[in-house]
Design a protein around this nucleic acid. Structure first.
Lengths: 333, 333
DNA sequence: CTGTTAGCGCATTCAA
DNA sequence: TTGAATGCGCTAACAG
């Protein structure tokens, strides 16, 4: 492998000058810089991440921690992050943490601590106190996407408002008997994404004078949404509208409704959250949260922090928007 | 940050001993090792990746290069890789390369060359000669998933056989007028995944005495599949069966057929390839290729290579299997 | 089995 | 503007 001294020799300068010319830090005459650049190019020299990192303390890499890789939202956000980061020359080191405590511990207390990354982005990660502390102990900028985490700098949509918006949409159409598919009662207490969406639902109903908000818990998969919708729609007094806390569940609900011989939206209105690419194929009305853009924003926030900008908590709120594609309609009278 | 000398001091030994005790390389008495382990644990010591990498030449990280992050197949394979790799203490460094030549060049000739990774896994990447050379020049084990790349060690399903199996399934049901949705003519020439599936289709038809194989090119998205199916089904002499080269396109085809008022499978049989999780919701018959397992296998292959096993080319073939879920039926007579 | 020593490849002082 | 020297934190010889 060609090293910095090969370049130095080829350019007839010292390694210090090569380093300065290539990194842009420190004074180098234009002519010298040119010679170094040419020599480096010709030799195909690339600086060793390990050596550079050891000498500077900067790794030119950002760690991204996700709970799932194979779900649409996460891979889409990740794509947004990747786009933005690679443009700035940063590598992405990917950490997927399941629910297994042993594995989580290994990621938080070993992998992430190897000083391989200059910053961390977490996506919709629910962290316990110990894990949060562990992250903060890293001493690097951390940006948490999705879910207001009081312990971290967050970049998140106002999920309470999202829940309200979706609910309001249904109420405005005249629906009075709604069911929410999402977080269970236990989760609703916390400030997690599912919990907030559920609370938005409950609060908005209450504001409309409806106090018996019904919630069918589900696990954010198509299958879970389908099962929850089936339960709701086959109950004694079935709802005329469903609000699913994710598009995947909403799609499951649409499929379940069809299976039950119900027409969407004539017999039941259904609204989701996400902006899943599949939504248009189901004419799904949804609250789009622009997942890919979230990744981009997070990457920018991290880069800004690495440039020295000291971001405050609650770095920013992300946009969301109701997209009416036709799976909701005014209540038949 | 706590360093190796802090541990050494705490344990009353030299840094060399700490290194040996923690890494497991070299002889250490059980008692000493125990003391070191305790001291390291108490201090929360984690070895610096940069320093260790610089000293050993090993980075404990594997690079994964993908063309897309936000498509089901890729994120699913990635999840499989991640699972297997994290268990062995390896980090994943993720590189997403688009079609943009400038960006590709930067990834192949800069990022990947930083000596940050001990091995590379590529997923369904179509590389030009220069890129292949660049990868091989890295001097690390490389495993290419999907697509027989003559220049790399590959781990791939026999996509020619996949194409034949799907086609055969339709032929066995009595269909004689089939259309393939997949690679265009230009792509068919090469040994890419889409090209091979298409050739499997054409060859199997030929074997059955059908020489006018019809192919509708599409781009492996739901939308592309839908458009291609619409073209095929509205043609003068519409086919009774469609073979889509991916489940996403097959789902698009099902949606298109429905839109045209055609019943699946009564009016048209449709078969896909992948084993996409969404398939079951469309009763999609498909050739499952166990994407997640592919990731696992690739990770294992890479780990074996890092353990010194010198793998030959064409490392192995991956399993695939026809899953009949009901979107195909015997031809109505 | 353990400690001492000498780098790994680069970035940054400090002098010139 | 440039070069020589030093050290980033760790590992691998080598001696003991």
């Amino acid at each position: 492998m060609v090293g910095i001294d090969d370049v130095a020799r080829a350019a007839g300068v010292s390694t210090a000058t090569v380093s300065r010319a290539l990194s842009g830090r420190g004074p180098v005459s234009t002519a010298t810089r040119e010679r170094v650049l040419v020599a480096a190019e010709e030799l195909g020299y690339v600086v060793s991440a390990a050596a550079s990192s050891l000498a500077t303390g900067r790794a030119r890499a950002v760690g991204v921690v996700v709970p799932f890789l194979d779900r649409w939202f996460f891979s889409t956000v990740l794509a947004g992050i990747s786009d933005a980061l690679v443009r700035e020359g940063y590598d992405i080191t990917l950490y997927s943490v399941s629910g297994d405590p042993v594995e989580r511990h290994r990621v938080f207390d070993d992998h992430l601590r190897r000083r391989r990354i200059d910053a961390v982005i977490t996506i919709a990660l629910e962290l316990d106190a110990e894990e949060s502390a562990s992250l903060r102990g890293l001493g690097v900028p951390i940006v948490a996407i999705a879910g207001p985490n009081p312990l971290l700098t967050t970049l998140t949509v106002d999920d309470l408002a999202v829940g309200r918006l979706a609910t309001d949409h249904l109420l405005a159409l005249g629906h009075r008997h709604l069911v929410h598919i999402g977080a269970d009662a236990a989760t609703a207490a916390g400030s997690t994404v599912p919990g907030l969406r559920r609370r938005g639902f409950v609060e908005q109903l209450a504001a409309a004078g409806i106090t018996d908000a019904v919630v069918e818990p589900a696990d954010f998969t198509i299958e879970g949404g389908s099962a929850a919708a089936t339960r709701a729609l086959t109950a004694a007094n079935p709802p005329t509208a469903l609000f699913a806390a994710s598009d995947e569940m909403a799609i499951g609900a649409i499929l379940a409704a069809r299976e039950l011989g119900l027409r969407v939206p004539e017999d039941v209105s259904i609204v989701g959250v996400d902006g899943h690419e599949l939504g248009r194929w189901f004419s799904l009305t949804t609250v789009d949260q622009f997942a890919r853009g979230q990744g981009g924003r997070a990457a920018e926030a991290v880069l800004a922090a690495l440039d020295g900008a000291e971001p405050g908590r609650g770095l920013g709120t992300l946009p969301f928007e109701l997209v009416d594609r036709g799976s909701t309609a005014a209540m038949a009278r």
